[in-house]
Structure formats: C-alpha cells, structure tokens
Amino acid sequence: MPAIAVDAMGGQHAPEAVVQGVAEVSLHTGIECVLVGDGARIQQLLEGIAYNPEHIDIVHAGETIGLDEDPGEAIRHKHDASLLAAIRLVARGRCAAVVTAGNAGAAILGGLREFAQLPGVRKVAMASVYPRNVDHPGQDPLALALDVGATVRCEPLDLVQFAVMGAAYARVISKVEAPRVALLNMGHDAGQGGAELAAAHRQLAALAGLNFVGNIEGNELTSGKADVVVCEGLLGNIVLRLLESVASMAVDLTVSTAQRNWRWRAGMAMLASGSDRLRALADYASYGGAPILGLEHLLIKAHRRSNAQSIANAVKVAAKAVRDGVMREVAAAIAASGTQVERKRSRR
C-alpha cells in the first residue's frame, strides 16, 4: 500500500506527539509512513522510543508553519515548510495521503495549491467527527460534520456538494450503506433559515441517491439522527467549538464538584468508569482526524491538540481511506450527482 505522509511539525504537541504516534503505528500495523519535518529532530526523537524503521521514512523540510501564522503568508513564503513538503509528496505520487495536525488554513490553501480540485466541485469542505448517541447496535459512535471552516459562506450548491461528498466518505469509512444526511438549521420546516438554506433543502431533497433526512436543529446534533451534518463553514466552526467547550466544561464541573466534599468524592469514585467515559468523549483530540473534501487527493486534518494516540488514529483513518478507495468513491458520487459546475480556472 502506498505511504502516508505525516506533517511531523504540525500541532500543539509536535513533533514529539506526531513522532510517537507514527512510531506506534509502525510497531502495530504494516502502514508505511513518511515523517516530514526537521530530519535531525525526528531521528533523535525516534531513537528514544520503540519504533520499527521498516515502516518509517523521513523527508527533511527546513521550515514549519506555526498554528497561529497567517496561512496565506505562510504558504507564499515558506516553500520548504513541512506541511507543504508533505502535500507535495502526495501530489508527486510518492504518498497516497497527508495527515497534519497543523495550521488548518495552511492545510486548505496548501491542498488547493498542490492538488487539483475534484472535477465539478466548486468549494472544498473541511470535515470533522464528533461523538453522538447511537440509535442502534453497530452504529458509528462518531458523526461527520462539514464544513467546519474551509468555506465560510456557502451557496446552496456548495452545501449539496458537501452532502454528496460527506455521504460518500461516511459510506466507506463508517460502512453505512445509505448514510443519513441532514442540513443544520434553526427548525425542521423546509423553508426556515433564509433563502439559501431553503434552496439547499429543496435541492437536497430532490437529489436521487442521497438519504436526506431533512433539517436538524442544534439540540439534535448528538442524537444519532444523522450520520452526516451539512452546514456552511462559519456555522460549522462555531458549532464544533461549542460542542468541544461544552464537553470540556462538563468534565471540569464533574471534577470540581467532586472536590467539594467527601460524599461527592465517594460518589464520583463509584462512577469512575462513567466519568472516564465522559472524559474520553470530551477529548476531541483523541478522535484522530477528518478529511478536507473536494480535492483529488486525501488530506486528513487532525485536531491541533492531537496527542500520540490521535495521530496514530488519524494515520489509520488515512490508510483505511486509501485502502478502501474513498477518494474514488467521493469523485464518483460527485460525478453521479449531476451537481458539477464548470470552473473558470483550475489549478493544474
């Protein structure tokens, strides 16, 4: 199987967590990874932990794009940045997918610069996974939301294309025959949310081959009613951050409450496995990553706070997506949907 390029310098805990995550993958799977970044530093870190060198290559890149750097400026001036070097490895066929926990904006711009967009896709969407209740046994405990920040304002057609791409991705990764797709809105009525959302609802409902279940409200996001939730980037980003902060607040509250008196502490001790589960659910960084859809190659964006385990999970998601031909599925779904538009100018 072709290799996965991993941006070793991207993320709050990089390069340590990234190198550790890839080392874990090298010991327990046959996935080949190419760590891209400061070669000497990566090698030094690897030598201090258990790893299998047969599954790891290192490509040196002399620059790093910081998490808070301006993405446009960074892409323009840092040609030897680890993120761009990793993306180039995929563009040139050395690797099959990229994983980064680094600057999201730079990942999107880098992807747009080095990869071609999928034919007929107007805008790219950044997806994210989040925990939700399951309605039935075997249902994936994670749902997919897109867009969460790549395209701030969307036209109805963009939302339709996001739905098609998200459904194709979920079909392969979550193994759901017909993923339920919903449009995030302020009510269930098809006409609510303004002209653009109403038009998107109309087009989604009319689209053959898409299991569109209508609008979904904010309080239903975690209910398990939808496998794929579609929204514009601004809203998606706010919702995702809100979910993260609520989950983290719940954990903090539980801990601080338990510290107040011994009876609550005893109660908490009895509920230890439950609170551990809550903590695990609230740990968004551990979910691995989700794709930036709309590009011809796979780019997995992991959470900026990713630890070694989440990097390992993101690499496994990327390898699974490559093995199962996700990008082929997404391209075929877009082609079959009849939603393609002709772009005036495309890269490459």
């Binding site: 290799a3 080949e32 090698q43 060198p53 047969e54 790891i56 290559d57 290192i58």
Partner: peptide, 17 residues
C-alpha cells in the same frame, strides 16, 4: 514477506543513525 520499501527504509535508518 518484506517489501522493497521496508528494505529501503531499513537502509536509510541505519545511515541516519
């Protein structure tokens, strides 16, 4: 059941070390 990539990576690793 080694692959050529595994051999390539092994040689690169021993050189880097």
């Amino acid at each position: 059941a080694y692959s050529p990539e595994r051999l390539t990576n092994s040689l690169a690793d021993i050189e880097r070390r």
